[in-house]
Simulated scan of single mutants.
Amino acid sequence: MLDELKLPADRASAGFPDHPHRGFETCSIMLSGRMEHADSMGNKGVIGPGGVQWMTAGRGVVHSEMPVVEEGLLHGFQLW
């Protein structure tokens, strides 16, 4: 599945709070804005414009992805 995220900064506050991952992989690509990600294993980071994150998640991991954008556009893709 290919999911596109494209929102102006003033509408990009909700993000994707804590949610479980159960044995799948995602590839996230940011074109503009930034996404902060963290998981229950203590991993965290920020993906910025032009950044790519490949994630393999096993069963039992809780993950969150929250926007870090103050102006402009939050725009990216995630391949599942």
Rank of each mutant, 00 (worst) to 15 (best):
H21T: 09
G60Q: 03
M30P: 09
R59T: 10
S64I: 01
A12E: 02
F16A: 14
G15F: 02
V61F: 06
G76D: 08
V46E: 04
M1G: 11
L7Y: 09
M30C: 05
S28V: 10
D39N: 15
P20G: 12
M55P: 01
R11Q: 15
E25Q: 13
I47C: 10
P49M: 01
E4V: 13
M55Y: 02
P17R: 06
G48A: 09
G51A: 10
A14V: 08
F24W: 02
G72V: 13
G42D: 04
C27K: 01
G45I: 04
L79M: 14
V69Q: 14
V69S: 13
P67A: 06
A9E: 04
V61S: 02
R34C: 00
S32M: 00
E70S: 15
G45L: 03
S32R: 02
N43S: 15
N43E: 07
S28W: 06
V52H: 07
V69A: 13
S13M: 02
H63N: 08
G23P: 00
L7Q: 12
W54F: 14
A57T: 05
D18P: 09
R34N: 09
G42E: 08
V69Y: 00
M30Q: 12
P49G: 11
G45S: 14
G50F: 11
M55D: 07
L5C: 14
P49Q: 05
T26D: 03
P67R: 01
M1I: 05
L31N: 09
R11F: 11
N43A: 10
H21L: 08
M35N: 03
G33W: 09
F16P: 04
L79S: 07
P49V: 01
M30T: 05
A38S: 15
A14T: 07
D39S: 13
I47H: 03
F24C: 02
S40T: 15
Q53W: 02
K44T: 14
M30G: 02
H21G: 11
S64M: 15
D18N: 14
